[in-house]
Design a binder for these strands. Structure first.
Lengths: 234, 234
DNA sequence: TAGATTGTTAATCGATTAACAATC
DNA sequence: TAGATTGTTAATCGATTAACAATC
């Protein structure tokens, strides 16, 4: 956390993965790891790992490597997992319900505090211990509770409409599952779009290319590893 | 489809989004669009759009722009949406059920042909018109039906185990929702990982950084647009 | 100490942007 | 024709990899 240069989004997107692997090592009782060993496990490169961590400060020790529990903690704190951002979820359909049941918000820096829907048949029902509220009560709720973030599991049109309302209520983080690009709208809000349809089409595109023997360059994430010659050789 | 150089994954990941915007234009009765106009709509740059499309051939017309329905079709065909890849889904828990109900496979190049689970309480139940099968029958099913792709909505451990079995049965496309990185394993299979936890942590990280006034560079996707001086000026 | 491995700078590579000739 | 806008090459920028001195 010492450096103050801008962190690139490419680096940020790799952090959760580092965190995941380090937690696994920690749970397996591993106390120490070198960038080389971690890189092999993750299918990335030692250089990239050191460079990435370097953005936030020196967490390792020359000649030793990285202390696994310590590095896991540091990453958790860089990720901000010790926050308890208040989050609300809009849209208790199939996807919304699955997210409520499936995602562990509290170990990822959030507390899910309320769920809203507009369907009278759904309002009042329980999901994972939470009662679904009427979306009509949304603004009052926001005024009183000041949620930090919103999870949008709504159809495109409602999502656009609701996002504006939420933004006006002070919500500055959006986890958006609806089929439109929220990221473009609000300069000072943080948006993470999860476009399942786009993801499925990407898979289709790659399978199609593979079927037709078209070339797609190996993904970012898979290192274009180029074995360097050992120093002493011709 | 004329060029034969490798397409980069950065380009491929933008294609579904182009497709989405073009479909919207088409549905709004727009017949013609310039790279400039599309770029403004998408929050990207005209240069990038032309460069991206250029990978696959010349779809536009100088002085006119792009024919919207034609370009949408071309993109659909590059994405391979006219395929009917046979897909099966493993894990009919909250997330699996939501995906079955929520995702329109058929308009994205896939046909969902079967659902498997290991829970006797779930086997035999109906989800969106499909009967959940016993995972014990998986290999026989694959031998008979030769599915092309699998959607993994399983816990980490089962996912690892099942992926190996599926790969041996000839499955070469994976849409992986489980909390581990499938992409690293099989060289000749295509994998699309959807890591909801990682996505949520990324959101947390950015909200945390924003809270603490740390700098994160604007995302790829938001253009670092640098207004160029008009030619004639000093 | 000698060996190992980081932190950090320099070199390379790839992706994005700019520019403009071609041409509709 | 004149204006518009693409296709395409060149320039810039950013991200990844390589290398090595610092140091545990």
């Amino acid at each position: 956390m010492s450096k103050s240069r801008k962190i690139s989004m490419s680096v940020v997107r790799r952090l959760p993965r580092y965190y995941r692997f380090l937690l696994e090592l920690k749970n397996n009782g591993v106390y120490r790891v070198s960038s080389q060993a971690l890189a092999e496990k993750m299918g990335s490169s030692a250089s990239q790992i050191r460079q990435d961590l370097h953005c936030f400060g020196g967490f390792g020790q020359q000649g030793y490597g990285y202390d696994v529990p310590k590095l896991a903690d540091e990453l958790g704190s860089i990720l901000g997992l010790d926050n308890h951002f208040k989050a609300i979820l809009l849209g208790a359909g199939n996807l919304g319900r699955a997210i409520i049941n499936h995602v562990d918000f509290s170990s990822r820096g959030f507390t899910l505090t309320a769920v809203f829907d507009c369907d009278p048949g759904v309002i009042g029902t329980q999901i994972n211990g939470m009662t679904v509220r009427d979306v009509g009560a949304l603004e009052d709720y926001c005024t009183a509770e000041k949620p930090d973030a919103a999870v949008l599991c709504l159809p495109k049109e409602s999502a656009e409409e609701m996002a504006d309302i939420l933004y006006d209520c002070g919500v500055r983080g959006f986890w958006n599952f609806s089929h439109y690009d929220l990221s473009m709208k609000y300069g000072d809000a943080v948006t993470e779009n999860v476009h399942l349809n786009d993801s499925l089409m990407t898979l289709c595109c790659c399978m199609n290319a593979s079927k037709e023997n078209n070339q797609i360059a190996s993904k970012p994430g898979k290192p274009r590893r180029k074995l360097s010659k050992p120093k002493g050789e011709a």
